[in-house]
Computed example of a mutant assay.
Amino acid sequence: MAQPKFDLKQHVTDIIIQEIEKGTPPWQCPWTGSVKQFALPVRHNCIPYRGINVLILWTQAHLEGYASEHWMTYRQAHELGGQVRKGGKSTPSAFYGTFERKDDETAHDDEVSARIPFLKTNRVFNVEQIDGLPKNYYAEPVPPVDLGTEPDQHLEDFFDATGISRRTSPLLRAYYDMRLDEIHMPPIETFHDAARYYAILSHECGHASGYSSRLDRLTPTMDRKERAYEELVAELTAAMLGVHLKIPAHFDQNAAYIEGWVAAMREDNGVIFKAAADAQRAFDFLVGEARFLAKERSI
């Protein structure tokens, strides 16, 4: 049985939407360090990639934690004296070109032809998957920068009072771990400003509100549609908390979620009503829990 033809456009769209739904769009990073988020990916000859290839390779670098912006084919690596490591998976990149096809009615005339565009898939590897290349191809990871961003004690007290466990480590990822019922945050000092830190923390608290011992909204087996819906609930919760706690909004960041929301709302025009109701319940729970625990501690 023939294998289905690889659909590059669908593949790229699926991966980017998946990362947006996770709240981790590959072109945005509110903290410093990790992969060179703002370095344009380049070919083996240092010519920058353009267009969709920038997003494709940024996304893959984001997913795999690659620090280098250099990408090349298996053959190019071999010609440079390198060897792709065993088991290394390639990343599809797009190559646009044209070929000439002569018009049937004027085939006798060499000067009359049509230029037909085509899209081809190239398979490339990041240099961090390749051994033996010249040293100049390898990049050192960018260390986190201490920007001097300081915590806001009023906000710290509020989030502590929710009773939701929070862990900080040098790992430059923010996420809610449902298995441990714990939020992980990068150090606040690596964020460009405190507002971004607390906005993201609010979003993760939105997720945590759905834990089984709280509002019981989350399940380990959620499909993509359900995860997209959960991202919408968490972001609406964060927006409500932002107003309540006077955290300045960053609409450029919030806009990253819109694509997933629009798709969900096109399928069901009642989804925004349901999400707003779930967000209101999450907001009420978090604020109420914070007030209750704060009152208990003051007694």
Rank of each mutant, 00 (worst) to 15 (best):
A174Y: 04
F159T: 08
T168E: 05
P134N: 00
I164T: 13
L171Q: 13
A107Y: 11
S169G: 05
V142L: 10
G132F: 04
L133I: 05
E100C: 00
N136I: 06
D104R: 11
D146S: 01
R123N: 14
E100Q: 11
R101K: 15
N126C: 06
R167L: 09
P144H: 01
Y96H: 14
P143D: 00
G163T: 12
E105W: 05
D104E: 14
E100K: 03
S165C: 12
V127N: 03
D110W: 04
V112H: 00
L171T: 11
F158Y: 13
D160I: 07
A174V: 08
A114E: 15
R101N: 11
G97I: 11
P117I: 03
L155Q: 06
Y96W: 13
D103R: 14
L119R: 15
T162P: 09
I116N: 01
Y176F: 15
S169K: 04
E111Q: 03
N126H: 05
K89G: 06
F118M: 15
F158R: 03
E156I: 07
K102D: 00
Y138H: 06
E105C: 05
G132E: 04
P144V: 04
D104Q: 07
P144G: 02
F118D: 12
E156M: 12
D157L: 13
T106L: 03
K120Y: 11
N126W: 06
I130H: 01
D131V: 10
D103G: 10
N122Q: 15
P170D: 02
D157P: 07
T91E: 08
R167V: 13
N126V: 01
D157G: 07
A174L: 07
F95A: 06
E128P: 09
G97N: 10
F125I: 06
L147T: 08
F158A: 00
L172M: 10
A107P: 09
L155A: 00
S90G: 11
T98D: 10
S90L: 04
S113V: 03
